[in-house]
Amino acid sequence: MLLTAVVVVIVVAVVFDYTNGFHDAANAIATSVATRALSPRVALVMAALMNLVGAFLGTAVASTVGSGIIAAPQGMPGLAVVLAALIGAIVWNLITWWFGLPSSSSHALIGGLVGAALASAGTVKWGGVLDKVIIPMVLSPVVGFLLAGAVMIVLLWIFKDSRPTRTARGFRIAQTVSAAAMALGHGLQDAQKTMGVIVLALVVGGFHQGSEVPWWVVLVSAGALSLGTYAGGWRIMRTLGRRIIDLDPPRGFAAELTASSILYTTAFVFAAPISTTQTITSSILGVGATKRLSAVRWGVGGNIAVAWVLTLPAAALCAALAYWALHPLVT
């Protein structure tokens, strides 16, 4: 019975990972597609492959998600908490995908963990939530906006005397590299979150000890994220690539360079599970503001900000409802 429950949780975790892939595919490739640096299909193949590679680059973020957010009870009650958290995250991902809002799959999962833990009267490690989630959630968009704007200003100064058509052509080529770096960072960050949840399920089920990630968990998480990415996220891609600002290749390059740098820094240095969605969106807003403030469609940005703010509590509520529905089955 316990083994069956663990398998069910792992299957649902893989489904979440897949929805994460198609929900967040736009993070890596929307700017490159919008500037015509890459065709949509080529961009998706590249993003899927780089997501796969990125997932093998580290497990520090997985340890944070698996052991630094909640303390789940052993056995069936703990598995119900993890399953409810995943259901809450999947539901919120699908809602925001349907409306084309680039919300955070990472924060949906963490909100789900917190909501399910609270519903079960379990333990939430609020210090870890504050240090690893809330503070990075607030700081990463601010840093992305300011740093992307600064990078764009430097690029404008360096290429101020260049011919626009030649500059655009060069940056389209450069964007193939920056888009690949962005996809690699997405795989590094987001696949690890699913790894952490699977390890948590194995631990509470009694089939694993510690926070070390087994090789097969890495492989499964990487594969599901990569397949989900290849499935695409066209609704969100339109929002990021066209509705916020009309991007040109230099601005697309600056946004991707900035966002990927932040993803690597937070993963390798701070082991913080930040949102790739927030990071790239704020970077796009930052490069857009250097053109002129009116060039940015701030109303669209405001709608995205609302989705960001709602994600943690909304996913927590969905997970709490899921736990209350599951609870009679495990008692």
Rank of each mutant, 00 (worst) to 15 (best):
residue 46 M to E: 14
residue 69 I to K: 09
residue 174 A to R: 05
residue 57 L to D: 01
residue 150 A to Y: 13
residue 109 L to P: 11
residue 67 S to Q: 13
residue 86 L to R: 10
residue 110 I to P: 07
residue 153 I to R: 15
residue 127 G to F: 06
residue 66 G to N: 09
residue 175 Q to P: 01
residue 131 D to K: 15
residue 145 F to Y: 15
residue 67 S to H: 12
residue 73 P to Q: 01
residue 70 I to A: 10
residue 57 L to V: 04
residue 128 G to E: 12
residue 77 P to G: 02
residue 169 R to M: 11
residue 117 A to E: 09
residue 90 I to H: 02
residue 98 W to A: 14
residue 149 G to A: 15
residue 121 A to T: 10
residue 90 I to P: 00
residue 138 V to I: 15
residue 105 S to V: 07
residue 68 G to Y: 07
residue 70 I to T: 13
residue 77 P to N: 01
residue 144 G to R: 09
residue 132 K to N: 10
residue 46 M to I: 11
residue 138 V to Q: 06
residue 73 P to I: 00
residue 121 A to E: 14
residue 100 G to E: 08
residue 135 I to A: 11
residue 148 A to D: 14
residue 150 A to N: 09
residue 121 A to W: 04
residue 154 V to R: 11
residue 44 L to I: 00
residue 90 I to F: 02
residue 124 V to M: 12
residue 69 I to M: 08
residue 93 N to T: 05
residue 119 A to G: 07
residue 88 G to I: 04
residue 140 S to M: 05
residue 124 V to Y: 03
residue 76 M to R: 10
residue 97 W to S: 07
residue 97 W to N: 02
residue 82 V to P: 01
residue 138 V to H: 05
residue 84 A to G: 12
residue 80 A to M: 09
residue 71 A to V: 14
residue 129 V to L: 12
residue 64 T to A: 00
residue 65 V to R: 04
residue 51 N to G: 06
residue 56 F to H: 10
residue 118 L to H: 03
residue 71 A to P: 00
residue 50 M to Q: 04
residue 120 S to L: 01
residue 144 G to F: 11
residue 159 F to C: 13
residue 90 I to D: 00
residue 142 V to T: 15
residue 58 G to V: 03
residue 44 L to P: 08
residue 164 P to Y: 08
residue 100 G to W: 01
residue 107 H to M: 05
residue 92 W to H: 05
residue 136 P to I: 08
residue 53 V to K: 05
residue 91 V to D: 04
residue 72 A to E: 09
residue 124 V to P: 12
residue 86 L to Q: 04
residue 170 G to N: 13
residue 116 A to C: 08
residue 82 V to Y: 06
residue 96 T to E: 05
residue 111 G to I: 09
residue 151 V to C: 13
residue 99 F to C: 03
residue 133 V to G: 09
residue 43 A to M: 01
residue 42 V to N: 06
residue 119 A to K: 02
residue 170 G to P: 04
residue 49 L to V: 15
residue 154 V to S: 12
residue 95 I to T: 04
residue 128 G to R: 08
residue 101 L to P: 08
residue 138 V to T: 14
residue 91 V to N: 06
residue 83 L to Y: 08
residue 53 V to C: 05
residue 113 L to C: 10
residue 114 V to C: 10
residue 110 I to F: 09
residue 92 W to K: 06
residue 120 S to Y: 07
residue 104 S to D: 10
residue 73 P to A: 08
residue 73 P to R: 01
residue 110 I to W: 03
residue 107 H to K: 12
residue 64 T to E: 03
residue 172 R to Q: 14
residue 158 I to V: 15
residue 173 I to G: 04
residue 177 V to Q: 02
residue 166 R to M: 13
residue 135 I to L: 15
residue 87 I to V: 15
residue 145 F to R: 12
residue 162 S to L: 13
residue 144 G to E: 12
residue 146 L to R: 11
residue 161 D to H: 15
